[in-house]
Design a binder for these strands. Sequence first.
DNA 1: CTGTGTAAGGGCGGGTTGAT
DNA 2: ATCAACCCGCCCTTACACAG
Length: 292
Amino acid sequence: EKKMAMAVAQQQRDNSIERHIDSSGKYVRYTAEQIEALEKVYVECSKPSSLRRQQLIRECPVLGNIEPKQIKVWFQNRRCREKQRKEASQLQTMNRKLAAMNKLLTEENERLQKQVSELVNENGFMRQQLQPAVSAAPNADGNGNDSAAATPRSTMRDANSPAGFQSIAEETLTEFLSKATGTAVEWVQMPGMKPGPDSVGIFAISQGCNGVAARACGLVSLEPSKIVEILKDRSTWFRDCRSSEMFTMFSTGNGGTIELLYTQTYSPMTLSTARDFWTLRYTTNLDNGSIV
DNA sequence: CTGTGTAAGGGCGGGTTGAT
DNA sequence: ATCAACCCGCCCTTACACAG
């Protein structure tokens, strides 16, 4: 009551519009007819000039008892409301999109988590499977003769078993060494694989060393010419390498070693897709050069 | 009683105008 | 050119009516 009395007093003092209070002391809310008339103007012009507003009061009887300042304020508030509604609508739209994206990402995350779990299990299983193969390595006798001749081609041809894989690796290594010239890229057909560049094979490339200086070999299914680019040098190889893990290593008996590596690398050809490599890395000191 | 809608107040920045 | 006065619009806030 005190506030209202003060408001009325203020209104009497300067004849200004005071806080929604009209001459009868009631809070002013415009009638439906008044709002309708104002909205009608608003749709064609949201920001009418002072002249237009005066004209509106004159030509519209229902607005006759409203002060010009009130009309100005009404349009100001009306623009403000429209802006707020527009922003709220945009935020809702954005929120819906983000919620949908969140759902997709959550699902993708769950899928990848599951995949990680499966790979971890698989990794553990393969480690277990590889363990006996190390102790059964053909160089265990240490006589230095671990070439393919020591392992008959007729046995252990299964590349899926670690022992068979190792057998194939040794055999291929012998062939590789016999063909590596240090100056040319060689294609060595993997035993048991179909011939041609699309099959798994071994590649060797010169690094400018003397003698047997070829340094890289990989078990990949790419064209030899492209492999040349990948294996040109060690830094290039490792730049694209996402992960590399040595499963087992054994001595060749002639001063070298063979390591069985599992490698994931981003293909330089496609960039986006990762490739999985089973790699045999052979290191020796022949001719004072090293073959990797 | 509480939340929402809204008329109006007040601050602020920008533009215009007239006096100096 | 400068400055005060004024107007306008935007923005934030306030206070109240009203619905649930």
